[in-house]
Simulated assay, not measured.
Amino acid sequence: MALMQQWPFALVAAIVALMVVVAAFLWPLDRRRRIQHSAVPLDHLDRLRKLPRYQQLVRSRLRRRLIQVVCVLVATACLVILVGRPAKPDEDWQQRRNHDVVLCLDVSGSMSDVDHDVIEAYRKLADSLDGNRIGLVAFNSAAVTIFPLTDDANYIDSQLTQFSRDLDRGPIPGSRAGTSGSSLIGDGLASCLQRFDGSDDRRGRTVVLATDNQLSGTPVFSLNEAIRQAVKRKVLIQAVAPSEADNTAVSVLHDAVAHTGGDVTLVTRTNLEDPDRIITAVRDQEARATAATARWTQVDVVWPFGVLALVCLVAATAMEADPRRRKEDS
């Protein structure tokens, strides 16, 4: 039981306290019975009982006993409720870590001058999307996974830093295959779409595609065919293009990604011209995916009943130990 796991001694202590109060409540009754057995008989007690002071003491004792009984009953009821583990519904839709983002980078020759800038922009973007799963795929004529989807922020940052160094050493191993050409954007995007695991279709999914859209070769998938796959799988495509890229190529890229609800953001010297555009689009899609799978969760409600039980037990015990009460009983 979650209550016993969180407060392993709370119920035990409360039950012991209740037993102490009940014992303190019953002990005077037993003491009074013993006194009655050894008491000296008195006559004309009816006159004594008519005295105002006597009647005042009787009423005071009855009030005290009534309050003690109520306190003990309330404390007992609270303990019974605590054993039943009270809970309230909580509209927690678990919005964090509900999105997958694949960074899809064109590492062809035409992008070599800006790839470092794009990687730095990716790092800033990853910081802004902390808590989401992020992966990186590089492609030229073939695609290679640099690191898979993960929500480890330190690992993501270190891998992006290492990948930036690897770019200085030459072509990325695994990013070129055969003689089909280079910068095969459609094939690269289609490969990036395959990096999403299919275990949970309810998660929001985004591909951040960095390319100048300068095709040089014969791809298996055209850009439009890859876009249709993204639309079918409900994947948002946000494009990142160098600010120096050909305007016509950027326009074609914009029209293509618009079918998924995405847009094109230009990168200039490690800075995205409008980074909030990608972040907002990712979060909006995440909110839609979350709302579609919203569920109610329960949160334990312990402290009100625990505090009330404790107050009642302390009050009942204090009244029993009140020196004025002992004087009255004597």
Rank of each mutant, 00 (worst) to 15 (best):
A2K: 15
Q5Y: 12
W7K: 03
P8M: 11
I15H: 09
A17R: 05
M19L: 11
F25T: 10
P28H: 05
L29K: 12
D30L: 15
V40S: 11
P41N: 05
H44Y: 07
L45G: 08
L48S: 08
R49C: 14
L51R: 06
P52F: 01
R53Y: 10
R59W: 12
L79Q: 00
L82F: 03
R85M: 13
K88T: 07
D92H: 07
V102S: 05
V107Q: 00
D117H: 02
L125W: 01
L125Q: 01
S128H: 05
R133G: 01
I134C: 04
L136M: 05
F139A: 05
S141R: 00
S141P: 01
T145S: 11
I146P: 05
T150A: 13
Q162G: 15
L167C: 10
L167V: 09
P171F: 11
S175F: 11
G188L: 04
L189S: 11
S191H: 13
S191K: 10
C192T: 06
L193M: 08
Q194N: 15
D197N: 08
D200T: 06
D201T: 11
L209T: 00
D212Y: 05
D212N: 06
N213V: 04
V220R: 07
S222W: 07
A226L: 02
I227K: 03
R233G: 03
V235I: 01
L236F: 01
Q238E: 06
A239P: 01
A239Y: 00
A245L: 04
N247W: 09
N247V: 11
A258W: 01
A258I: 02
T260S: 06
D263H: 03
T265G: 07
R269M: 14
N271A: 13
D274I: 13
D274L: 15
R277K: 10
I278S: 03
I278H: 06
T280Q: 13
A281W: 04
R283P: 12
E286Q: 15
A287R: 08
A289H: 08
T293D: 13
R295M: 08
R295G: 08
W296H: 09
T297K: 12
D300K: 11
C312M: 04
V314W: 07
A315Y: 03
M319N: 13
E320M: 11
P323W: 05
P323L: 07
R326D: 15
